[in-house]
Each structure stands twice: as structure tokens, then as C-alpha cells.
Design a protein around this nucleic acid. Structure first.
Lengths: 336, 336
DNA sequence: CTAACAATGGAGAACGTTCTACATAATACC
DNA sequence: GGTATTATGTAGAACGTTCTCCATTGTTAG
């Protein structure tokens, strides 16, 4: 059966015009009479013609945008994706996601693959590759980087204002009366700078300083286990903190487990806050105070910037999205 | 610098051979001398040549496999993706994910887009479209369907043995001494048959019958809210069940919340089990008994079948993966 | 009534591959 | 030494679009 795809030539034959004319109609280009428009549109509908993306790619647009995901497991991604696809829903662009893995090497392989497939533009979510490499990609194709501070002239960027987010948490805890507030962050592995956890830690330090309090940062990792280990260490100290602010919700869950095991009740003996406001944070059983980034807005913004860039803007833009604090059951005044 | 992509012609010029020869080397085709092989490989490395996927697509392979995801938010997908990419890691194939949404219409749009981009094959995860439409897609391109029972001659399928999984739960609960075991399922919206929840419900019924017990199925939805509402209804009955088996973990979380609110302790007053073994089920704070599908194996199997199919197999295959029961803290003997 | 111009449609050359034929060179066989 | 066979390399036609010229109409200006 070798399906025999309907081509632009088939449409042209059916409508009794040239392929060039059909192409014009399809692209909405200048120089088409109303009559031509009607004839061709009808033929397209009758035959069920759909332009072949690969053939298009050889000459111009492919109407495909790539989104490179680092960690597929991050429960925060779906929101971003939804924002992106939502924004693009009624345009001709299609979004494809590329699982890039967490290694710089695999991420590079993925972005290369996307460029090979001549995507019109790329959204890179929390890429870990070196700045130079990022810049190289950005000269090959329009790029928007999400979740990495300190942009470049070569690409656009959308970031959550992590300094502000961390500040919101500290302010909230201080307002409740806490003074010994510890922070659990992620151990820096990659050489990439400006990753969210670094900025959150810095924001925490700034806020603590602003309140005249001593900071206390412990670096483990943004996993349940990392949060658990970090909390265990913090809680074993002589003067244990009365509040722990984990740089990610998943780590905060580990902190909660450590509190359980240490027989501490939350929030009476220990307040716990996270970051990201992942879905389960709102489950009554967890009820975790967290910072919400509104991934939908981030995704939608990234999509908008990318399309603008593709369609000609050359000046680089960095958009910062303000987070909000969602107060739930894991934070409260310290027991005195 | 608009370097102008390195093409096969550049390589040919550099190596002093024809483009046809380079093409042969790149594809590892027959009829290349060792000397030719060396010359060309060197030229490729020197120039950093990478084949242009779109140009390839126009003639033959594109070495791109598409995975259509229905609900991006389903925490079970990452495992499948990992299985797929893991399996394909050392081949030339690249995997791109397409967020298809939960509507038949948007899913159809996505699969169309993937076909337009001449992907070599498609893995469809829990597609909701009608059987006929599925068959149509499968004639256009190789297809593997994941998570939908009752395959077709036109495509391969990988399914979790949901009947068995449901049986495992029922056997476990009966073994603990339960007799009033209710099941919460998802309300059928789509006309598609053979979706997991249907099969799980059927497996539950079969297993209950096998133990000589009366079944009790309530259809709400596979969301936290759905589980909550369902459990509330079940627990309000005169003879309330001593165990609730939710067809999905996310719903089981809602059941747990309902139990909390009703002042019932788990598992003493109520045993709760889910399905899918999502990541948070293992968190100590949740510790949910669940059925594990081993998404990695499912993904890897799907990838294997798809590649086989692309490379020539024509007979259709259905592969069934056996689930395992993970017993945790939410199930125990009923209080008498 | 002609010159200039705008509006419309079409021819045909790309784009970067693959792959079928075919030409040539090397080897085997008798 | 001649012929058949095999191994190796190349020419060149697709593949399905886009897009730059052109060619043909009308239409307007003078």
C-alpha cells in the first residue's frame, strides 16, 4: 500500500493550478486571488493534504519547536510544558520534547539532534552545559533558556526570581518568630553557573542578613534522601534549628521524614518549607509550605519569547517571573 | 558567521570522493573499501559533519522515533521514557516526545504532526482515540501501543497484565482477612476500549468472584479528588468496606485523605492499596501498598518492538509485562 | 491610444540526502 | 589468456517543498 502521501502536486492537479500557487495559498503569501484561494482550499480539504515537514525544512521553516528537558522526573516540568503548548495551541507551531538527561554530554547530544532536525527554535529547561556551548547553540538557532540566571546576549531567558522566592520564605519564618533557620541546598556538580539552587541559597543568605540573623547552609542534594540526610545532620546539633527551608520540595519531603523519625512534630517542634510547590505539596497528608513558581506562566513566556525571536527580534530579553509563597501546614510559630 | 551547515558534498570534496561514497560510509552500507572508509571518516571528523535529518527524511529514514504522551502529569511516564531512551541509547535513533493531551482530537493532531515530520515509528502511550483511527495511523507508520489491551494486527502492543495486578491486590487483602473490599475506578469517557482502568476493574471482579466474595465497584476518576470523593461515599455506608483498592495511586492518596478526615486509622480501620507504584508511594509518610508495573521494562520492550517493526518484521506482537505487588504500610489485617 | 504599473499565476532551480543503475577495476576460474 | 564474477566507486534522478524571477493580464495615467 505504501500509503502514497498526498503532495502539493496532487493538490495542484486537482485544482488545475501550479504547485507554486498552492504553496502560496498554504503559506498565506501575497499574490493570490479570492477565486484561487477558494479553489485550492477546496482541493486541500478534499484530498486531506498536509504539508510534509521534512520537505519544508529543506527550504525554510519546519514549524517545530523543541523543548529540551533535563530531568524528566521533575514534577515541575508538566506545568512548563502546559504553559508552552497552551500558548502555542492555536498557532501552526508544534512542540516536541527532548529528554536530554542530566549529563552535559547527553544534553548536548539532544540539542544537536534537535538542530539536525531543523527545528525552528529551542527552549532549554535548566540546561547544565557550559556557557560557551550554550552560546554556540544559540548562534545556530533561536534559543530561550529557562531556569538559569545570568543570561547572555545570544539568547533569551526566563527565570524565576529565586532570590525573591527565598526571601519570601525567610520573611515568613522570621515573621512567625524563628531565628535559627537552616537551608538545605544542592551540591554543585556541574560547572554551569546561575542554576536555581545556587541563587536560592544566595537569596536565603541575603534575607537572613537583612534580618540580622546568622545563616546556616548545608549542601546535600535535591532528592528525598538528600533532604533526609541533611535534616538528620541539622537536627543532631546542640542548638538545632527551629525551621528548615529546603531548596526543593522533594528534599523537604525528606526533611519531613527525618522529623517524623526524630519524634519531632511539625510545625510545633520544627517548621519546614520547600520550593516549587509540586502537586503533592497540596495533598492534605503533606500540606507543605512552599514557593510557587507558576510554571504555566514561565512556559507561556518562554514560548512567546521564542516565537518573537524566530520572527525577527534580535535584541536579547530576560524575563523574570515573580514567585508567590503558599503557606500550608508545615510552618508555624516555634515552641518556646 | 552563518557558517552554512556542513553538507555531505563538503565532506566528499574534502575526501576527494563522490557524495554517494560518503553516503555509503555514513550509512554503513555495503561496498566500501577500508581505505575509503578511513578517508571519509577522517573528513567527517575534521569538518564535524552531521547528516541533516530533514534531507534524509525526504528519501528514507529519519532515525527519529516519536512517543506520544497523553497526560504529561502522570508520574508513571518518566519510567517508560527512561526505558525507551535507555534501550535506544547506543543506537542511532533519537527519541522525541509529543504531548498529546487527553482529548482524542489533540492526540490525533499530535500523531499527525509526528507523521508529517516523517518519524520512523511511533510509540503511543495510552491513546484514547478510536480503534479505527489507531489502525489508520498504524498503516501509515510502524506503531507500538502501550497500555491498551486488545491489540490489532496492524500494530504491536505492550501491556501491563492488569488483570493479574488487580488479582495480586485482592489476593493480598483476602489473605490478610478482608472480605469487604471495594474498588474505585475511573469513569469511562472515551469510546476507546481496553484501557487499563477497565481491565483492572474486571481483574478485581474476577478475583473477588474467585474468592467467593461480592464485588463493589465505584466509578469516580483517577485524581486525588476522585479518590477522596469515592472513599467518602464508600465510608458513609452502613456496612463500610474494610479495604479500598484504588485503580491508581493518585486516587489512593485521596482515599487516604478521606480516611484521615473520617478519623479512621490506616491500616487498622481501613486498608488502602493503589496501582502504579508512583514515586511518592515509597515515601515513609505515605508508604502506600501498590502494584508496580516496571515502566522501564515496558518502555524498553516498546522500543525493541518498534525497532524490530521498522527493520522489517510484519507479524504483529503483543507483549505482556507482569506486575508485582509492593506491600507497604497502608495494608494490614482488619480490626475485628 | 500608448506607456507605465500593479496584480496574479507559473517555471524551475534550489535544499541535502538516498539509492538505482551503471562503469570500472580486481580477482577467480578454466 | 580470455571470460565470468565480484568488489568498488560514481552519476544522476528522485523526494516535496519554497521562492526568485518571469510572463501574462488588467488598469491607470497621460
Amino acid at each position: 500500500m505504501t500509503s502514497g502521501r498526498v503532495t502539493i502536486a496532487d493538490v495542484a492537479r486537482r485544482a488545475g493550478v501550479s504547485t507554486a500557487a498552492v504553496s502560496k495559498v498554504v503559506r498565506g503569501a501575497y499574490g493570490v486571488s479570492a477565486e484561487m484561494q477558494a479553489k485550492v482550499t477546496q482541493a486541500i480539504d478534499e484530498l486531506g493534504y498536509r504539508p510534509h515537514a521534512a520537505a519544508r525544512a529543506l527550504r525554510g521553516r519546519t514549524y517545530t519547536l523543541g523543548v529540551m528537558l533535563s530531568d524528566t522526573r521533575n514534577p515541575f516540568f508538566p506545568d512548563i510544558i502546559e504553559g508552552v503548548t497552551g500558548r502555542l495551541g492555536d498557532t501552526e507551531y508544534q512542540v516536541l520534547l527532548g529528554p536530554g538527561g542530566i549529563e552535559p554530554k547527553t544534553q548536548a547530544r539532544m540539542t544537536d539532534a534537535m538542530i539536525d532536525r531543523s527545528m525552528d527554535g529551542l527552549i532549554l529547561i535548566s540546561p547544565v552545559m557550559a556557557d560557551a556551548e550554550l552560546a554556540a547553540i544559540a548562534t545556530a538557532t533561536p534559543v530561550v533558556v529557562v531556569g538559569r540566571h545570568g543570561g547572555s546576549a545570544a539568547y533569551d531567558a526566563v527565570v524565576d526570581d529565586d532570590v525573591m522566592g527565598a526571601g519570601l520564605v525567610v520573611d515568613h519564618l522570621v515573621g512567625l518568630g524563628h531565628t535559627r533557620i537552616a537551608h538545605i541546598t544542592h551540591l554543585e556538580r556541574a560547572r554551569a553557573q546561575g542554576l536555581p539552587h545556587t541563587v536560592r541559597a544566595e537569596g536565603y543568605r541575603q534575607a537572613m542578613r537583612a534580618h540580622g540573623l546568622a545563616d546556616d547552609v548545608l549542601a546535600t542534594s535535591f532528592t528525598e534522601e538528600g533532604g533526609f540526610e541533611g535534616a538528620r545532620e541539622l537536627l543532631a546539633r546542640d542548638e538545632r534549628p527551629t525551621a528548615i527551608f529546603a531548596g526543593a520540595d522533594i528534599a523537604a519531603l525528606g526533611v519531613l521524614r527525618a522529623a517524623d523519625e526524630a519524634g519531632l512534630s511539625v510545625p510545633e517542634d520544627l517548621s519546614v518549607a520547600g520550593y516549587d510547590n509540586i502537586g503533592i505539596a497540596s495533598l492534605k497528608r503533606i500540606s507543605l509550605t512552599s514557593v510557587d513558581q507558576d510554571g504555566q506562566v514561565i512556559g507561556a513566556t518562554a514560548a512567546r519569547l521564542l516565537v518573537e525571536r524566530i520572527e525577527g527580534r534580535s535584541r536579547s530579553v530576560t524575563s523574570s517571573v515573580s514567585p508567590t509563597l503558599i503557606v500550608r501546614g508545615t510552618t508555624g510559630p516555634p515552641r518556646r
